[in-house]
Structures are given as C-alpha cells and as structure tokens.
Amino acid sequence: MKTILLSIKDSDAATVDASTLRLDELAKKTIDEIARQTIRSADGDLELGDVFRVERSSNDSAEPSLIVRGDCRAVHKLGHQHRLGHIRVEGNIGDCCGSCMTGGTITVNGNAADYLAAPTGTRNVGMNGGLLVVTGNVGDHAGHRMRRGEIRINGNAGNSIAAWQIAGTILVSGTVGEHPAYGMRRGTLVLRTPVQLPANRFSVPLPLDSPFQHLMLNRPGLRPNLASLSPTNARLTWWVSRGDRAINGIGEVWHVRD
C-alpha cells in the first residue's frame, strides 16, 4: 500500500485548513494529483504542493500511510474524519487534529494544539473511533464531545480535557488543566497524576480494583510512562470518581496516588 510523505516547506506560512485531505482518497491518486489537491488557507485556496513537498512510496502494510514532517503548528484539522490507515506527524500540529475521526490511527510525535479530536463546525460529536496518540503536550479542549475510540497523551493536557465526553477513553500521563471531564456523560479519563475534582460534580473517590485495569493498562502499545500505571505496580493506589453528576453523567475518572 502507498505511503505519502508531506514535508512542510515553510513552517511560518499562513494558516492552513487540512480538512480536505482524506488519506483513503489521497491513496488512490497519483503524486501529481496529490500535489494539485486544493486546501484552504488564510490566504485563499492553495494547492497542497504549494505548502508541502510531496513524495510517495510503497510499503508492505495493507493500509495507506501519511507522514507529515516539519513544524505544522499552522496546519489545522489534519486527520479530519480520518477513517482508514495511519497518519504520523513528525513535529507539532495545529488545532483540531483528528477532529471527527472514526477509525485508523493518528500519531503525533510532538505537541498538538487545542481541540484535539474535537468536533468542528456544527457537529456535536467529536472523535468517533480509532486511536490518536500524542507523544508531547496538548492544548485545551482535547477530546471534546468524544464518543468512541482512544486518545493517549504522553505529556500534559490543557484545560477542559474530556469536556462533554460521551464515551471512549482518554489516557494522560502528565498533568491536566482546569475543568477536566466537565459535563462528562460516560467514558473514561485515566490520569497519571492526582486530581482534585469538584465534589458537586464528581463522586468521592473510591478505591478501584477491577481486572479491567489490567486489560486497559497492560497493553504493549502503551508508552512506558503509561505502562507504569500497571495495576501490578504495588506502589500505586487507584481511585475512581464518577460523574459529571450535574448532568447525571456516569463517566469515570481514574487517578492514582503514589
């Protein structure tokens, strides 16, 4: 299957909306057609080749891959409605990465800006499947209105992570900002660091002891700092709070105490 490599030419270029790039559709195109793909920017419509150097190769995988290289902080909505194949960003990425994705995987080997995997436009559902991994930090509103799938953040997260979460799983190795899981209905937010949740919205933390902890945290794909959450790690005590009770939510926030 094809691997498409996009290397950003000028990281200081104008803001780019990459929501028109769909990996499953790009994989069917020739390299020239990919370079002529229209993307929107603050300066008007551009061709993909104006912003990125486009290369293509083949790999043994059954699914297509897209590799984006360079500092792409000005590239927003990459992986919008992504459903098949693997997107890997070698560098930072802008807002709304993985917005409304329904399948496949996105890996950001760097930091991601705000609204990671959040809905865009008038949509009321954010991430709806697949796996999104960020090795660095993420901005505010990550996992907003997430409904299905999994987000792994190996660094820190900003404010309002998992806000209005409907279902799905978010794991954070670092710290989180204010208002975590605000308006959470269901789903799971796993936090490596202790967190103080408002008593009027979340239940008093109770010890968590379930075989499901092992299923969730002992997977080989988790980064070492997430894998250290293993329930076999006797140093850690697990707690769970349920909420957001302000909206009769029964989501859960797992957090640990060393």
Binding site: S61, L131, R186, R219
Partner: peptide, 20 residues
C-alpha cells in the same frame, strides 16, 4: 454497566478493538 472498547495493536500493526 459500562461498555469499553480496548484497542490492541496486532503483530501486523493493525489496530483491533475488543469490546468488554
């Protein structure tokens, strides 16, 4: 009850969702 889909990465790199 809580439904959870746990994503497992297979040996071939394919991500498989197992529902518990």
């Amino acid at each position: 009850q809580i439904s959870k889909q746990v994503l497992q990465t297979n040996a071939d790199g394919r991500v498989e969702a197992i529902r518990y």
